[in-house]
Design a binder for these strands. Structure first.
Lengths: 195, 195
DNA sequence: TGCCAATCGGAACCAGGTTCCGTATATTTC
DNA sequence: GAAATATACGGAACCTGGTTCCGATTGGCA
C-alpha cells in the first residue's frame, strides 16, 4: 500500500513527469500480458513493442528484470504473506494452517510460467526477485512452522528457508502433464509430520 | 559395454577416421573438465578451445549439447541404473532399497553443477538429455517403487516418473549453503510411507 | 512563449549459440 | 609412392536476445 511514489522520510519526493507515470503503467500491463503469454522471461523487445515504447524506457523504469517481475506480482505476494497469520488464527491446527498456506504459495507459483525456475536461477538478473520473495515470505513460513512444531505436529529441524526452497523447486515444470507439483508438495509436507 | 563403435545389426559400421576418433576423445575430456569447472552449460567456444579444436568440430561430433552431456555422463547413469536391481536384492526391505537408490541418484545430480536444472529445462537443446535419463532410470525406479508398494511399505499412487521429477527438482540449487537437497528428498520419501 | 531538466527511442554493442564452406588430411586406389 | 576421393577440420559469419548510450523530444514552470 505504499503510495504510488510516496517515500515517508522527508525526501524530495519529486513527482515523476506525467508521461513517465503513464509509460510505467502501460509497461506493467504489457509485461503482465507477456508473462502470461510467454513466461517471465519474455524477450525485453517484445514487452517494449507490446507497450509501444523503446527498450530504453523499460530499463529506465525497471533496471533489472527482477524489478519488473516484482512490480507485476507484488500484490499477489503481499496477499500471500498476509494470509499466513490469518490462516494460523482460523485453522483447526497449526499444521493445517501450514498446509493451506503452502497450497496458496504453490497455486501462485504454478500459474506463473517460469517464475519458479527464475526464483532458483543463480542468474544475477534475478537476485533481487529472489531476495524479495525470501524477505517477504520466509518470516511468514517460519511463523507457521514454529507454531506447528510447538504443537508437536511436525519435526522441528527444518528451517523455513529450506522448506520454501524445496517447495519452490517442486513447482518447477508444473506444466508438464505427467507431473503434479501439488501432489509432490503434499508428500513433502506429509514427510514433515511427526508420527 | 557396446563396443567403441559396434552396431549389432549388419549395418555398414564405417570406421571413423583416426583424427575424428582422437578429436572425439579429446572433446569428451575437455567437456568433462569444463562441466566440472563451469557447469553443464559451459560456453561451446570454451570447450572447443580447451580441446584445441574449432566449434564446428564439436557440432559435428555432438549435434546438441544434450549429446555431449549424455556422452560425458553415460557411464555414471548406467551404473545408477544397474544398481537398482542389485539394491533390491541386497537390502533388508524394498523401501530401504528405494531410499538407497534415490540417494545414489541424488549424489549423482548434486555433484554435477547445473545438471538438475538442465534436466528440467524445457529448452529443446536438452530434450534428448531428458529422454535419455528418463528412458534409462524410470523403469528402474518403477521396479523399486512397485516392490515397496507390494510389500505394503509405501502408498501406491505415485508414478515413478513423477517421483523422479520431484527428486530431480529438489536437487536444483544444491550448491546453495542454506539448502540441503538430500534432506528435502528424505522428507519426500518419508511422505511416501504408509503409516 | 521560451527554457531546462526529465524522459524517450532505438541504434549500437556484446555474448553465446549455430551454420556453412573453403581448406586440410586420412584412406583407398592404381 | 602418387593421385583420387571421401572425411573431417576450423573459424568467420550470422542470429537472437540482453544492455548501454546519446541525440531528439517533451512536460512543467517562469
Amino acid at each position: 500500500m505504499t503510495g504510488s511514489s510516496g517515500n515517508a522520510s522527508g525526501s524530495p519526493a519529486p513527482r515523476k513527469r506525467a508521461d513517465a507515470r503513464r509509460n510505467e503503467k502501460t509497461l506493467l500491463e504489457a509485461a503482465a500480458a507477456a508473462f502470461v503469454a510467454s513466461g517471465v522471461d519474455a524477450p525485453v523487445r517484445d514487452i517494449a513493442s507490446k507497450a509501444g515504447v523503446g527498450v530504453g524506457t523499460i530499463y529506465r523504469h525497471f533496471p533489472t528484470r527482477a524489478d519488473l517481475v516484482v512490480a507485476v506480482y507484488r500484490h499477489q505476494v503481499e496477499a500471500c504473506a498476509e494470509a499466513g497469520p490469518h490462516l494460523l488464527a482460523n485453522s483447526p491446527s497449526p499444521y493445517t494452517a501450514l498446509t493451506r498456506w503452502v497450497d496458496l504459495f504453490v497455486d501462485f507459483l504454478v500459474t506463473k510460467h517460469g517464475l519458479a525456475e527464475a526464483l532458483r536461477s543463480d542468474d544475477p538478473t534475478f537476485s533481487t526477485l529472489h531476495a524479495y520473495f525470501l524477505d517477504r515470505l520466509v518470516p511468514v513460513c517460519a511463523g507457521l512452522l514454529k507454531a506447528a512444531a510447538e504443537a508437536g505436529e511436525i519435526r522441528s529441524d527444518i528451517a523455513a528457508l529450506e522448506l520454501m526452497f524445496g517447495v519452490g523447486n517442486l513447482c518447477i515444470g508444473a506444466d508438464e502433464p505427467r507431473y503434479d507439483a501439488r501432489r509432490m508438495v503434499e508428500l513433502l509436507l506429509t514427510g514433515l509430520r511427526l508420527p
